[in-house]
Design a protein around this nucleic acid. Structure first.
Length: 767
DNA sequence: GTTCTAGAAC
DNA sequence: GTTCTAGAAC
């Protein structure tokens, strides 16, 4: 044993106290089949790793569990070796069925990641034991020792320890550990040694994070030890928001504020309160806000108050109500409202309103910082972050959405796409963030929950104008949905130590839906249900059908964009929209809908309700009666419109390659007098061969059993020609000026097959 | 499908 | 300078 580390009372306990309880957790040794364990020790020189390892080796060997200690300081024939040698030795020991103690500093995630991966190769549990003693203790021990295996001793030791501690990264479950034990003093170490020593071959340890406490004195300790006045360089490496009880003087309070600023501008309600009332509040606040990772934490931006222009005052009320309700009902969760600016008005409003409410303020507070860098820059560990998404769940657009998609990389885009295509206002969708995502690796974020709030901005879709009755309702729904999704995730969060689900953490550290096989309130099911709800009910049958198609070997030529689903949604669930002005008629076979962006004075869609009939390409002879029904409905509505305006002329037909999913017949007046007709594609889609007359379609299906589609994009890019006189025009405005005045008769081929419907044809019975 | 916008066209 | 389009973004 290294005499330099002998100061640590890490030997097996002689006190006779219960051996395996740490930080108040229940006894964690379980009788079961027992698994090999890879224990990765984490700590600077002088933290007592070797003492720990040797004590555990001896104790556990006595209990019957074979261990191998892999010590980088001695692996080279008694001298310091390489990481590769350690990896090989550890892998060999695991193959022999031994459990392994990795005895090297492992202070940075990258340094230990390869050892974490070793556990996967033999299905071993991977544990971290973080020997997080005060720096001055480590330095003191390593300076004074004389025969350290790695030669970290004497005058150089202080510098080495100091340098290492600057870069230390506390272990996270998301790195792949199934269990993390924090030891912040010798007593903790003793208990951890006892626990691992008592581990027999048919034992395993509970999963989760154990023994973590608030940090703080470490860095100050280094500075005191090194007698340096300038704290800035070290403060920058501090990951915690609230520090130690040493901060009792005014000067130290200033340091706290400075630290928070340097750590990414972090400033929480709780922290500010603490600064103001430090003497009164210190003990109760410091642990809760700083590093209480036993609470599953959701960081969320204010929804709808940026681009969607929702009133801040009203939004703050909704936030405070929803959040306080939530934290009062759930005991293992923490909510953090995040905004970038210290001057954020929404944060101020929420803080003010929250202050008037009675609840545990350590479980809902505000935080200034970048939501994509809360851990690395702000020292705030958040397992889950919310995204103020757009309805298409796509990256870009600026603000939080762009920042999160950017920080999370393509992994989030792919993961999102697997969960949902679109989102409705008032809903949210939880997306497990793949471990390949930088946001997962660097910030420890395991899930992103996309939320869509109400829109009050007339320049954005689904504007509620100034209807704040509905707006507040939808915003509340959005937060409720967000928090419910978060609760589902939190139920399987391993940090909740007495939670029966805590051991169900996957080895990769990612809580995937499949891992959450908890029986509590069926979180798995609720997650799935939520997934479909969030998309609108259309996607569940859509996915099922697509899968069926694949099974049946059906060829799906067209993939529909997320924006192309709305007609399908209306067709499948017209009752949901029956009060909307745009729905004109609902039958078993079809729905008649005013086109949201009419390209003429009158423009309606007759949408088939047959599931699986996306476009003309899917139409078979069996659908002929349906085509006739659609046509009849179109005629009926055209007649109705002609009664209202006898000057109109109608044409009924289909786009050969529609943009929107679900077979729909256009009934469109031939004036094309509409501000929504804006470009060449619009024009040509109704006036070129791209537009297939309903009568021709029915004839062709009748004669050939299907419609010949020759998708030709060039039809849409053709020059702009008047549909009456065929004159060419240089641009849309000039064309529109012309058609408003053109009185030429329609080309004769339209007239031959009753393709045009006007007051005169109705009167003469030609239609 | 719409919206946005850089840059072409005028 | 403004108008308009094409293509990217949504």
């Amino acid at each position: 044993m290294d005499p330099g580390e002998g100061g640590s009372p890490a030997a097996p306990s002689t006190s006779g106290a219960a051996p395996v309880t740490i930080a108040g957790a229940a006894a964690e040794i379980k009788e079961d089949a027992g698994k090999q364990v890879v224990v990765i020790l984490i700590g600077p020189p002088g933290s007592g790793k070797s003492t720990f390892a040797e004590a555990v080796m001896a104790g556990a060997a006595a209990a019957g569990r074979p261990w191998a200690r892999v010590c980088q300081d001695t692996i080279g024939k008694g001298k310091a070796g390489t990481k590769i040698q350690c990896l090989k030795a550890a892998a060999d020991a695991l193959k022999e069925g031994k459990s392994v103690l990795i005895d090297r500093c492992n202070l940075e995630r990258e340094q230990r990641s390869d050892f974490v991966k070793l556990g996967c190769t033999v299905q071993a549990d991977v544990h971290a034991v973080f020997l997080d003693l005060p720096a001055k203790v480590c330095i003191s021990r390593s300076v004074s020792r004389t025969s350290h295996e790695g030669n970290v001793q004497g005058g150089m030791a202080a510098m080495v320890v100091n340098r290492m501690l600057k870069n230390k990264q506390a272990p996270l479950l998301t790195e792949g550990f199934s269990r993390i034990t924090f030891c912040t003093d010798d007593d903790d170490i003793k208990k951890a040694v006892d626990m691992y020593s008592a581990l027999g071959p048919s034992h395993s340890l509970a999963s989760g994070v154990f023994g973590q406490k608030s940090k703080g004195p470490v860095q100050t300790g280094i500075m005191k030890f090194l007698k340096k006045a300038d704290t800035s360089s070290i403060n920058k490496s501090s990951g915690t928001m609230v520090t130690s009880s040493e901060r009792k003087t005014g000067q130290q309070n200033t340091t706290l504020k400075q630290e928070n600023l340097e750590a990414g501008g972090a400033c929480s309600m709780q922290v500010e309160k603490k600064l103001d009332n430090l003497k009164e509040k210190e003990e109760q606040s410091k642990e809760k806000v700083s590093s209480d990772t036993s609470l599953c934490t959701l960081a969320f931006p204010s929804i709808s108050t940026a681009d969607f222009q929702f009133d801040l005052e009203k939004a703050s009320e909704v936030i405070v109500d929803a959040a306080t309700d939530f934290v009062q009902k759930h005991d293992n969760v923490r909510l953090v409202l995040v905004d970038l600016s210290q001057k954020s008005r929404i944060l101020s409003l929420v803080k003010d309103k929250a202050a008037k409410k009675s609840f545990d303020s350590s479980r809902f507070f505000t935080f200034v910082g970048d939501i994509t860098q809360l851990h690395s820059k702000g020292g705030l560990q958040c397992n889950v972050i919310a995204n103020a998404a757009n309805w298409r769940l796509k990256p870009g657009g600026g603000g939080v959405n762009a920042a999160i998609f950017n920080a999370a990389g393509e992994a989030l885009q792919h993961a999102t796409k697997e969960c949902a295509d679109t989102l409705r206002p008032g809903n949210s969708i939880a997306v497990p963030l793949p471990s390949t995502s930088p946001l997962h690796q660097q910030e420890g974020v395991t899930h992103v929950i996309h939320v869509l709030g109400p829109n009050m901005n007339p320049m954005r879709p689904d504007c509620l104008k100034s209807d704040y009755t509905k707006g507040c309702k939808v915003l509340r729904e959005a937060y409720n949905s967000l928090f419910e999704n978060f609760a589902s995730i939190a139920r399987s969060y391993p940090g909740k130590q007495n939670d029966e689900t805590s051991s169900r953490k996957s080895a990769s550290g990612v809580i995937s839906p499949n891992d959450s096989k908890t029986k509590r309130e069926g979180s798995d099911d609720s997650q799935r249900t939520k997934k479909y709800n969030s998309m609108g009910s259309s996607d569940a049958p859509n996915q099922a059908r697509e899968e069926d198609n694949k099974k049946n070997g059906a060829v799906t030529n067209k993939t529909w964009g997320s924006w192309a689903q709305s007609l399908y949604e209306v067709a499948m669930h017209p009752e949901k929209y029956k009060n909307a002005d745009s729905i004109l008629e609902i039958s078993d076979e079809f729905v008649v809908l005013k086109d949201l962006y009419p390209k003429a004075k009158r423009h309606v869609l007759v949408i088939s309700r047959t599931d699986g009939l996306d476009s003309l390409a899917d139409v078979k002879k069996v659908h002929l009666p349906l085509l006739r029904s659609l046509h009849s409905a179109g005629l009926k509505w055209a007649h109705k419109f002609l009664e209202e305006d006898a000057s109109l002329t109608f044409r009924l037909g289909y786009h050969s390659v529609p943009s929107m999913r679900q077979l729909h017949l256009h009934v469109i007046s031939q004036d094309f007098n509409s501000p929504s007709l804006k470009n060449k594609k619009h024009w040509n889609s109704f006036t070129s061969a791209f537009f297939l007359d309903s009568v021709d379609v029915m004839d062709e299906v009748d004669q050939h059993g299907s419609v010949t589609i020759s998708p030709d994009e060039r039809l849409l890019a053709m020059e702009l020609r008047c549909h009456r006189c065929r004159s060419a025009h240089p641009n849309i405005p000039k064309l529109k000026t012309h058609i408003a005045a053109c009185k030429s008769p329609f080309p004769s081929h339209f007239l031959k097959k009753d393709k045009l419907l006007s007051a005169s044809t109705v009167r003469t019975g030609c239609s």
